[in-house]
Design a protein around this nucleic acid. Structure first.
Lengths: 140, 140
DNA sequence: TAGACTAATGATACCAAGTCTCAATTGCCC
DNA sequence: GGGCAATTGAGACTTGGTATCATTAGTCTA
């Protein structure tokens, strides 16, 4: 869905400079199909500084190209996002692949929740965990 | 709902030793009405070691007395839990108070999700954020 | 009531994830 | 090609949490 050129173009359009480090980070993230950590990217790019990888991934997140994935144990990962609007994830705990879910099942509950609690509800986190089809059949 | 004595009793019943450090940590957590971090507890108990506070809070979490609360930015906090079964939180982003929600709105969606994705769904995270009634009226 | 045995402690080193600083570099526009 | 601001990367720092290990101290039993 994304490729290096299209992201390069979006960076330029938004006034960001095109640098070798930035392109290297973009390229490294595009190679991942599931979720990954900043250190996964750092490990592939020994010539790029730690802070730069963090900065670039933050920038890509702000641009909607990456999104954060919350794992079951509470740690945060990243993944390339193909949906720029609000969505949630279904993460395979075995292979790490991630499905992006198009319907937000929490949306319908928010009005009821606001009424019953008196809160003004502004946001939510929702992530699902399980085992994907291939992982279920591949193991005893 | 909980008090020091009832927790002391539960610790003893489950074969854990009653030590001054443990009781101090329990007491410090009971003083919080909203969510708190390990360092909030550490700050109140300069005589208790860092590792002990972490260990005790982990133990209390396993016993269902504390539960973890995920903040919007992805950081984890703790709170005293009055529900031992599966539940979710509604966190006030202004004052930090936490409502425990009794209905799991995700439960109904899981079957559909499993059918449509082929995943075997084992777990999920769900937290809501907003402003509680007092915080909404107290500020312009 | 005193051992003895083992759980628990706490100092400390370590790890993981992320931010801050700042001098040096380098894209990009003219 | 020059100038300037954005970007870089080294490294120190922060936060949240775990591992190690010698010492201490609950608790059980006699």
């Amino acid at each position: 869905m994304y490729n290096l050129e299209s992201i390069e173009q979006r960076l330029a359009e938004q006034g960001y400079r095109i640098t070798p480090s930035r392109l290297a980070v973009v390229e490294a993230t595009l190679e991942h199909s599931g979720h990954f950590s900043v250190d996964d990217i750092l490990g592939r790019l020994p010539g790029v500084g730690r802070a730069t990888v963090f900065r670039t991934m933050k920038l890509l997140s702000q641009m909607g190209i990456l999104c954060r994935v919350l794992l079951e144990n509470g740690s945060l990962r990243y993944r390339v996002s193909h949906r720029r609007d609000h969505h949630h994830h279904l993460v395979c705990v075995s292979c790490g692949s991630v499905e992006e879910l198009d319907a937000c099942i929490a949306a319908g509950a928010i009005d009821n929740l606001a009424r019953s609690t008196g809160y003004d509800i502004e946001g939510h986190w929702l992530e699902f965990y399980g085992r994907c089809g291939p992982c279920r059949s591949g193991e005893a």
